[in-house]
Design a protein around this nucleic acid. Structure first.
Lengths: 344, 344
DNA sequence: CAAACGATGTGTAACGTTTCATAATCCTCT
DNA sequence: AGAGGATTATGAAACGTTACACATCGTTTG
């Protein structure tokens, strides 16, 4: 890659304006300076098209005004919404964002940390899965949805309450035999409190619940097998399922359709995330909605806060329930809007 | 924000290893050096946990290995898929990506350019709308979907052929009175060739077509009004509509449903973009699919190519047609899979 | 055996900024 | 009018790296 002619430096501006280097620096940084000097410098800078070299600045000051966001990828609403919000929040605060994606690969996570560390970012916001992520504590780090250590603040939605909310809702909607289905990473993260909350609420209400956990390694087939083992004479023995993610709802939905089990008539489904369809903005399914924007803003706030010595280790933000067609609410929901899909 | 203890520098490593600064630099950069020296340096670096300060490096070498991606936002599949791919392609080539979003605001676009210019990125990939974006030609720039000037390479999908493809498809599917509907920015971009391609194909086939263009400023209501004016006795006078984007398909679909016009029985719809539903991966509607990954890879390739003097000003990548339920194909498509939505 | 050469490590200048001690300038007050 | 103090501009040092000229050492050759 070729770059035409070097861009002007402060030295050039100083020469052009006939003032000292330090004066130019002051003007650029808004430090009070004699009016005529300020004018001369501003004119010269404009004439030359000067713009600060933040690499030189970042070298000198130990502050780069850059934050790294490390995510598995952007191919999921939750991730892209998070990235969008984080980017926006950072811009508002005068920070830049460098984005690195890991494809759920723990090696890539380590490489990303390494990479952004070289880049001397002022901090990292990360959504990672490696059980032993090496983050020196010289570099401020805020973790999303995964508690790593007491010295690393973790921002997540209130997974426990969300799980409880899902249980309450299923029971309220008349379910007698609710089931919790979990699929996810082998490592235990904050999101695993969803099941715990579900169980706690069920026990409190004395409900006849079941909780079944699978790992990504088991494959989705393990869940299908489980469901099949619980279908007796075309009838599923559960009448409500809380799935650990909206994506899981999709798979379950698909499988149940194959088995001619009707949703939501025979079994009601609640997911977690708050995934919405494009354009229509309808929820993909009945779901516990994570406050993505708030999570992003909170993560940024904590990361950039002056005093990081007293930040809580774990911050849980409130979730809400949103009906989305896979449960039988009393009133019809907005999804009725999408009836045209019937003809497809 | 507080940073604990400064990180070790090459000087520290040199002292620790008992060698000269230059030798450390050579080892770090893989320049041949005596075996024992190499070992000493590597050991010392590992012991101290040294990592390169890319700000110092970027200051010295006029190369930062950083590329900026400027997008309206990430809240659209096309944008997030593009960001995902660009990020991935850059990582493969050892580059970092800084992401800036503009919210479709042309002022924000200018601020972003300004910001990344300060950041001395090696180049910019931008998807912008400002009619007169000020990009000095000292900074390599690749534009997506918008031709700016002969010296700025533009990567887009083959909008013209895509429009033609949509026309051909509608005619092939039996439409006698096809309509092209456009909504978009006030400034004319590459995407406007969609309509041109449609018109060209219709004229070639002697079809009785109509072409109607609206701007964002007109509001979606203008399109609804237009449609209403062409509904006679409950029947729309067009039997096929090519919409300039999938999003427009959504609005049209919604409006036609209100007016009890059936899709695809009464009128067939084709969009542009290749938007897919989450999880299901089904196309949102019948559509002309943009090769997002290829666009990202191409943009990155061009931006990072050594010799930018002979790059073509405009690169159009091939699009494909994908049926998605808003047209009446001979064979049933994969969307049949989503029948369960019927019950929602 | 000495001179010349090649190979390899060393140290310093430069990149563009900010900061800070110093110098210059301007007032003000005696 | 001149000295003292307050204000403001100046210029050099430093940030961590790379590149290049130079010094050093070992080896080959006449």
């Amino acid at each position: 890659m070729r770059k035409a002619g070097k861009s002007p430096t402060m030295k050039d501006v100083a020469r052009e304006a006939g003032v000292a280097l330090g004066t130019v620096s002051k003007v650029i940084n808004g430090i009070p300076v004699g009016k005529s000097y300020r004018q001369k410098v501003e004119d010269a800078a404009a004439r030359l098209g000067y713009s600060v070299n933040s690499y030189a600045r970042g070298l000198r000051a130990d502050k780069t005004h850059t934050v790294a966001l490390i995510l598995p990828g952007l191919d999921h609403t939750f991730f892209s919404a998070l990235a969008d919000s984080v980017c926006h929040e950072l811009t508002l605060r005068g920070y830049r964002m460098v984005l690195a994606t890991t494809q759920f690969d723990t090696d890539a996570e380590a490489r990303c940390i390494q990479m952004v560390r070289q880049n001397k970012v002022d901090g990292i916001i990360g959504l990672t899965y490696a059980p032993d992520l090496a983050i020196g504590d010289d570099l401020p780090y805020v973790s999303i949805d995964r508690y790593i250590s007491p010295s690393i603040p973790c921002v997540s939605s209130d997974n426990f309450s969300g799980g409880g909310m899902a249980a309450e809702k299923l029971l309220e909607l008349g379910c007698k035999k609710p089931l919790f289905l979990r699929i996810g990473s082998e490592v235990i993260g904050e999101t695993d409190k969803r099941g715990a909350g579900f169980v706690a609420a069920c026990e409190l209400r004395g409900a006849d619940y079941t909780s079944q956990r699978f790992n990504d390694a088991d494959g989705i087939e393990a869940i299908f097998d489980f469901l099949d083992r619980h279908i007796q004479g075309g009838r599923l023995e559960f009448d409500g399922i809380f799935c650990s993610t909206d994506r899981l709802v999709y798979y379950v939905l698909k499988h149940l359709k194959d088995r001619r089990v009707r949703v939501p008539e025979d079994v009601q489904l609640i997911g977690f995330d708050g995934t919405r369809q494009f354009f229509t903005e309808d929820y993909f399914c009945s779901t516990i909605v994570q406050p993505v924007r708030q999570m992003a803003a909170t993560a940024v706030d904590i990361l950039l806060s002056e005093d990081r010595s007293h930040t809580p280790a774990l911050i849980c933000l409130p979730v809400t329930y949103a009906p989305g067609g896979t449960t039988q609410e009393a009133v019809t929901t907005a999804t009725g809007d999408m009836e045209w899909q019937v003809s497809i």
